[in-house]
Simulated scan of single mutants.
Amino acid sequence: MRALLCLLSLLLLGAVGPARAASELLIGSGSLTGVYYPAGGALCRLLARAPARLPCQVVATGGSADNLTALSRGDLSLALVQSDVQLTTTPPPALYRLFNLHQEALTLVTRQDSGIRSLADLSGKRLDIGNPGSGDNRTMRLLLQALGWPEETVDSLSHLNVSERAQALCDEQIDAYAYVVGHPSSAISEAAALCPIRFIPVEGDAVDRLLQSHSYYQRTQIPADLYSGVDDAIATIGMPAGLIAGPQIDEALAYRITQQVFSRLPQLRRLHPALSQLVRQQMIGEASGLPLHPGARRFFVEQGWLPPLPAATQPALISP
Rank of each mutant, 00 (worst) to 15 (best):
D175T: 05
A176I: 06
A178H: 02
Y179V: 14
V180I: 13
G182S: 15
G182M: 05
H183L: 11
H183D: 07
S185Q: 10
S186I: 13
I188Y: 02
A191Q: 07
A191C: 14
L194H: 06
C195G: 12
C195I: 11
C195D: 08
R198M: 11
R198A: 14
F199S: 00
F199H: 02
I200S: 00
V202H: 00
E203W: 06
E203Y: 07
G204F: 02
D205S: 12
A206V: 09
A206Y: 08
V207R: 02
D208H: 09
D208E: 15
R209I: 05
L211I: 06
S213G: 13
S213M: 11
H214A: 12
Y217E: 08
Y217T: 05
R219S: 05
T220G: 09
T220D: 07
Q221S: 12
I222Y: 00
I222M: 07
P223Q: 09
A224L: 08
L226W: 07
S228E: 15
G229P: 06
V230R: 04
D231G: 11
D231K: 15
D231T: 15
D232S: 12
D232W: 08
D232P: 03
A233W: 00
A233N: 03
I234C: 08
I234K: 06
M239C: 13
M239T: 14
P240L: 08
P240R: 01
G242P: 01
L243S: 02
L243V: 05
L243H: 01
A245W: 00
G246H: 00
P247K: 07
Q248P: 01
Q248A: 12
Q248F: 03
I249T: 04
D250E: 08
A252Q: 08
A252T: 13
A252Y: 06
L253V: 03
L253C: 00
Y255K: 06
R256A: 11
R256N: 03
R256E: 08
I257Y: 03
Q259C: 07
S263D: 09
R264E: 11
L265A: 12
P266F: 09
P266C: 11
Q267S: 13
R269K: 15
R270H: 15
A274V: 10
L275E: 04
S276I: 12
S276N: 07
L278M: 10
Q281Y: 15
M283T: 11
E286F: 10
A287T: 15
S288M: 14
S288N: 13
S288G: 15
P291D: 05
P291H: 04
L292Q: 02
H293T: 01
P294D: 04
P294T: 01
G295H: 01
R297G: 02
R298W: 04
F299H: 04
F299I: 04
F299V: 02
F300S: 01
F300E: 00
V301E: 14
